[in-house]
Design a protein around this nucleic acid. Structure first.
Length: 480
RNA sequence: GUCCCCGUCGUCUAGGGGUCGAGGACACCGGGUUUUCAUCCCGGCAACAGGGGUUCGAAUCCCCUCGGGGAUGCCA
């Protein structure tokens, strides 16, 4: 078995393609197969090297490794389609020579007009084959006009193509319904996707093509090309699409759809793989949070869902939180640290031990790494400015009692040495508050928030001096 | 329009003729643990698109309708 992932480098990698990549990777690992990365950059207008770079970066970040590709090489290269034009040209020559393809001089405008006519008459547009039997004179006339021809594939009549798809089952198309002779080479000489995928899949010895369902309708065109060229046809598995909340194919307009945005917000590769791997697939046990290893051992090309799935942002977030909370403290600290820095704190001045303690106290509160941004200030700001709910809390009767009692303690019997152990018990005694009535105002007074880490764990990390400062300033601002 | 795919709680899904008066998860709502918000635990809400068959028996098989999606590009 050999599989491939073949992105088009026209932007950041999109969540839907990420899922295709993940499934290919998972299936490859399960079967000990090679994964080929092929860059489909025949659209010179839209393809960029930067996109190619970012796609490879993102895949690497996800932990997806390919065995062959433009960067690592392999026996079936080159792996960029733009570097394979010579190969395609030979096939095109052959099709032309054998009368299985022909030059077409119809212009964009002429084609648009035909298409509009068809639409007006409520018919399907099928290219009528106008240029199929042009005489030499006619061709010369067009050439003299400066027309640059495209190459069209001559679709054989009355042919039937049946795809045995591992996911969709048996799907049959008739050659009458694929829209007539289609263009395989643009007038600028560059070939078109539907023509060369099948060539590359054959040449790269791909045994199983696992790709999005949006390619299913075009598969018969590709198979017809393979037949004309005597090329082997791979096995197929067409993955159901990932949809946005409005049920249409997930795209930019649905908001956060490119992988690098998830990466920047602090999603974990293992959570993304877990979630995307389980969109359209379920584990035997029904467990939702499962390690990649386990997905690999259970997933199969035939047990993927046939129906499309809406991308549930909330569930991904929940799942990420689950993975995040299970992270060992060392790795968690490594991952969180850059996000603390990004929130504007100088982490180089903090020692590792302190950072680890901070992370371990706050880890449980986070679903994504960037959540630590709004929590870090609790430890690292001198006096965080309270939000409006907290201000209200500090102004209540309990809030005022709390502030007064704390102020007295902190400038009296409580000092640097007994702060961590004695402060909360003494506050409790002097205010005579307990439970929620004790902890909510206490939390407000110490952290400037109503939500946050466990106070008894946070206190020693914030330290006596900062707490005193906060108590003093909040007292001045909120007590009567 | 035409061709193709799909249709179980709001969402992701389990189920593949009887064990399903439909199970799990997210979300939501209650309750519990935690001297605190959260985590965690327990409970609740909520679905077989509709109609015909086949069968002793249908969520499961067949047909039609409806609904959704994709393709129909000198994009991939």
């Amino acid at each position: 078995m050999r599989v491939r992932f073949a992105p088009s480098p026209t932007g950041y990698i999109h969540i839907g393609n990420v899922r295709t990549a993940i499934i290919n990777y998972l299936i490859a690992r399960k079967n000990g197969a090679s994964l080929v990365l092929r860059i489909e950059d025949t659209d010179m207008e839209r393809s960029t090297k930067e996109s190619e770079r970012s796609i490879m970066d993102d895949l690497t970040w996800l932990g997806i490794e390919w065995n062959e590709g433009p960067d690592v090489g392999g026996g079936c290269g080159p792996y960029r389609q733009s570097e394979r034009f010579g190969i395609y040209n030979e096939y095109t020559e052959r099709l032309l020579r054998e009368g299985k393809a022909y030059h077409c001089y119809c212009t964009q405008q002429e084609l648009d007009a035909m298409r509009q006519d068809a639409e007006k008459q409520n018919r399907t547009f099928t290219y009528p084959g106008k240029c199929r039997h042009l005489s030499t004179e006619e061709k010369q006339k067009f050439e003299a006009e400066g027309r640059k021809p495209t190459v069209r594939f001559h679709v054989p009549e009355g042919e039937t193509v049946t795809i045995r798809d591992h996911i969709k089952g048996s799907v049959t198309f008739s050659s009458e319904n694929i829209g007539g002779d289609f263009i395989i080479v643009r007038s600028d000489g560059t070939p078109i996707y539907n023509y060369i995928v099948i060539i590359d899949d054959a040449l790269m010895k791909i045994s199983h093509v696992i790709r999005g369902e949006d390619h299913l309708s075009n598969t018969p065109k590709q198979i017809l090309v393979a037949r004309a060229l005597d090329l082997p046809v791979p096995e197929y598995a067409h993955l159901s699409l990932v949809l946005g909340p409005d049920r249409s194919k997930l795209s930019k307009r649905h908001g956060i759809t490119s992988l690098n945005m998830y990466r920047e917000e602090g999603y974990l590769p293992e959570a993304l793989i877990n979630y995307l791997g389980m969109l359209g697939w379920a584990s035997e046990s029904g467990d939702e949070i499962i390690p990649i290893k386990e997905i690999i051992s259970q997933i199969d090309i035939t047990n993927l869902a046939k129906s499309a799935a809406i991308f549930d942002f909330q569930k991904l977030k929940w799942m990420n939180g689950k993975h995040l909370r299970e992270l060992p403290i060392g790795r968690a600290t490594d991952l969180f640290a850059p996000f603390i820095a990004r929130a504007g704190y100088d982490i180089s001045s903090l020692d590792r031990k302190y950072l680890e303690q901070l992370v371990s106290v706050v880890q449980i509160k986070c679903d994504i790494l960037s959540d630590i941004g709004r929590l870090a200030g609790i430890f690292l700001d001198d006096v965080p400015s309270p939000d409006s709910e907290t201000e209200v809390m500090l102004t209540t009767e309990e809030g005022n009692i709390m502030l007064k009692a704390a102020r007295e303690l902190v400038s009296g019997e409580i000092n640097e040495n007994n702060f961590a152990t004695d402060f909360i018990p003494r506050i409790k005694e002097t205010t005579n508050l307990k439970g929620k009535k004790l902890f909510m105002p206490l939390r407000a007074m110490i952290t400037g928030r109503l939500q946050g880490p466990e106070l008894d764990q946070a206190l020693p990390l914030i330290g006596y001096h900062r707490c005193k400062k906060r108590i003093d300033q909040y007292s001045a601002a909120y007590t009567r």
